[in-house]
Amino acid sequence: MSRITVSEERCKGCLLCTLVCPVTIIRQSERINQHGYKVAEVPADDMAKCTGCASCATICPDVAIEVWRGKKAKKAA
């Protein structure tokens, strides 16, 4: 299953990732990290919608996102 992980330590809450997700599953959480930023998240229920396109990771200025692509999801990037 395609999915992403957001490093809550590295996320600076810029929200650029939220704009580029084709299935709009990324949002700002209510969690504040040690640097005082409200980190981005994908609600667990929505993760299944992730296409593994890596758009979010591409635009993330802080390399906070890792992207896993499911076996069947084949090419996208």
């Binding site: 590295r10 890596a54 890792e66 992207v67 896993w68 692509r69 990037a77």
Partner: peptide, 16 residues
């Protein structure tokens, strides 16, 4: 069988 398609490049230090 899922593939890690995006991660920090090797040449980039892992730090904030």
């Amino acid at each position: 069988g899922d593939e890690l398609v995006f991660t920090r490049p090797e040449a980039m230090v892992d730090r904030a």
